Computed example of a mutant assay.
Amino acid sequence: MSRRNLLNVLDFLKRPNASELVSGTKDRVNLHDKFRNAIDTAYPGTISQLEVEAQQKAAARKKKVAFWDSAVDANTGGFKFSF
């Protein structure tokens, strides 16, 4: 698993049926908490940093104007037309 997928894996492990879907371990209780603690111990601050980056990306996506919206908005230098 890469850093890029870490938050996805944590979200997956939060699912109620995650213990049924994960193989390779006999101890399937609290997989999310155990995995998160192991990552925090081995790589302190990584999860927090990735969560902040994900929030920043989400905020940037909200601010970004869609191509079509910019094309039909006369205020942004595009053109406007109607039928």
Results as ranks from 00 to 15, higher is better:
P16G: 14
A18C: 07
V65H: 07
M1K: 04
S2T: 14
G77C: 09
E20T: 08
K62E: 15
L31K: 06
V65P: 01
N75R: 14
K14D: 07
S48V: 06
A54G: 04
I47P: 04
V72M: 13
K57E: 12
G45E: 05
D33H: 02
A38E: 01
I39S: 02
T41Y: 05
R28V: 15
L31Y: 08
K63E: 15
R3H: 01
H32S: 01
A71K: 13
R3K: 08
N30M: 07
F83L: 02
A66E: 12
S48D: 11
L50C: 05
V52Y: 02
T25V: 14
F79H: 10
R36W: 01
K62L: 13
T46I: 14
N30R: 10
K14H: 09
R3I: 03
L7M: 04
S23Q: 10
N37E: 12
Q56C: 02
T46Q: 12
T41G: 01
N17P: 00
H32A: 04
V52D: 02
D69A: 15
L50N: 05
L10D: 05
A66L: 13
I39Y: 01
L31G: 09
T25L: 08
A54N: 12
S19V: 01
D27I: 10
F12M: 10
A59V: 09
V52C: 00
A60I: 12
A58I: 08
G78Q: 07
A66Y: 04
S48N: 07
K57L: 14
D40F: 00
R61D: 14
M1V: 13
K57Q: 14
V29Y: 06
E53M: 08
K64D: 02
G24S: 05
G78W: 11
A74S: 12
G45R: 03
Q56V: 15
R28L: 15
D11F: 01
L50H: 05
G77K: 08
S19Q: 03
A42I: 09
V65C: 12
Q55W: 00
E51L: 09
I39T: 07
G24L: 06
